[in-house]
Structures are given as C-alpha cells and as structure tokens.
C-alpha cells in the first residue's frame, strides 16, 4: 500500500456529553478511494467533520501530508488541500451555478487554471453547463449533488471527503455519480474518502473499506474481501443465505461483537 496521505489515529469526538466517535483510526493511501460504511448514527459524518475541522476531537490526531491538522479551522484545512462535500449538498441556493463553482475556487488566485477547471467540471457534468446561470436552489437533488462535487473539485484538492453522495437520488443517478467519482480519482489522481450507507455501491467503487459501528471501526479490509464476508453480505448488502436446515436463522449475530 502506498504511503497514507491522510492518517487518522485514535480520534474521540463528542457532541456535548455524548461520545460519537470512540477511538477511530484509519489510513487513506494517496491516490486511492477509501470508504467508511456504517448505518445511521454510526458516526460516519462525524468522522469526516473531525477530519475537515468542523468538529474538534478531544483526543487523537489527524495527520495530512505529514502535518497535524486536528482542531484547525475548517477554512485552513481546506486551504491545505482537503475539500469536503457535505451530506445534503449544502449548495448556496441563491447564487448561480457558476457563482457556486467560483466560490469553490475561492482560495485560488490563478484565473487561467480556474477557467480550465471550470471547463473540466462542465465536461464531467454537462447539465451544469446548461444551467450555469440558474440559481443553485432551483436545481434538482441530483444536479445539486453534481454541483457540490464539482464545487469541491474547483479547489484542486488533493483529497475529497465525500459524504453520502447517494442520499435521496435515484439508482440510475447514483450509478452515474459514482462513475464520475471513479473517473475523478483515476484521471486527476484525487484521493477520495467516501462515506456511504449504500454499501453495495461503495464497495464496488472503493479500493479499501472500513466498517464503522456505534463510533468504532469493527472491520477493515480491501473492498474485494469485504464483499465476501458473511456479515457484510448479511447486514450491509442484504444478501440472505439459507441455512443447512432450510430456514433462515433470525437470531443470527454479528461475529465481531
């Protein structure tokens, strides 16, 4: 495995008195796609927020490119090269699509490079070009997701944190968006940390996966091998196998507890 560009060690993050992340560690190798799977409330979003600096961990460290970035302000983290695509898109509703994209490039000074990247992004998502002057709030959910991803790309980040890109989208759109995510990774060499509930899609897309349950990492492996595991199949992919006696065992337990 390549050298990790992002190394998270033993972070603990709280919402007030409630511990949301209980000592999570993981590595994201440069140029890879890493996914964190987990159900509702497992703490996936909190992990991303801790990395991008929106939330501060009580303990542990986040090292990006050899530099500790935990407890840094989110705008500083972003300037270092980590773009966060938040859950639920969070576009600027009353700005036009083009203005939204320009805001993505807020930290950049090279006008030529920005214009070039704008074209690249329009190449990935032609629909955004067609709607460039429209208000972002008037876009459909899928288009807003495309805009959110594009906006993050406009900063030319080294790492993109992608939070639930499939949320509320049709299966066809989800497939399209994941294809683009892979293209962005392969063509531009952008490292991607993907958080998903749609385990099937995430495992097919990513190289390496972590499974997060109630604030802990309970499993870590390459996505290929994760897909073969019984527990993953049963609890995350929903593939049910008949037992030897021809009945399904309803009381089956997860083996990692």
């Amino acid at each position: 495995m390549a050298e990790p560009i992002l190394k998270v060690s033993n972070i603990e993050t709280y919402y007030g008195p409630i511990m949301a992340i209980r000592g999570v560690s993981f590595d994201v190798p440069k140029g890879s796609i890493v996914t964190i799977l987990g159900a509702n409330g497992a703490g996936k979003t909190t992990v991303l927020k801790t990395v991008s600096g929106v939330m501060d961990p009580q303990k542990g460290s986040v090292v990006f490119d050899g530099r500790e970035i935990q407890r840094m302000d989110p705008d500083k983290v972003m300037r270092l090269g980590i773009s966060h695509v938040p859950e639920g898109r969070e576009v600027f509703p009353f700005l036009s699509v083009r203005e939204n994209l320009n805001m993505g490039a807020y930290t950049r000074r090279d006008a030529d490079g920005v214009a070039q990247d704008l074209e690249t992004v329009f190449g990935y998502f032609p629909v955004l070009k067609a709607r460039a002057e429209q208000r972002a709030g008037s876009l459909s959910g899928g288009e807003q997701q495309m805009l959110a991803i594009s906006r993050a790309l406009m900063a030319r980040p080294q790492v993109i944190l992608l939070d639930e890109p499939s949320l509320g989208l049709s299966p066809k759109l989800v497939k399209d968006i994941f294809e683009i995510v892979v293209r962005i990774n392969r063509e531009r060499g952008v490292t991607i940390l993907l958080v998903e509930q749609n385990a099937n899609m995430a495992l097919q897309t990513a190289d390496y996966g972590y499974v997060l349950e109630v604030g802990r990492i309970v499993m870590a492996d390459t996505c290929k091998r994760l897909m073969e595991k019984e527990d993953i199949k049963e609890f995350y992919l929903g593939i049910k196998e008949e037992s030897a006696r021809g009945k399904r065992r309803w009381k089956k337990r997860k083996t990692w507890r």
Binding site: S52, F94, N102, A155
Partner: peptide, 24 residues
C-alpha cells in the same frame, strides 16, 4: 467582487462557506 459574492455565500450557508475555505 469576489469577496462580495463570498459574503452572500456565507450568509446563505455558513457551513458550506467554511468548506470552500472562505474565512467566515
């Protein structure tokens, strides 16, 4: 102006403005 639009952006969605590296 860039900073003017950034002000609009910040008032529309503060969190997203942070994610864009805008010094909120």
């Amino acid at each position: 102006t860039r900073i003017g639009v950034a002000m609009q952006a910040t008032s529309q969605n503060q969190l997203a403005a942070y994610y864009m590296g805008i010094p909120v």
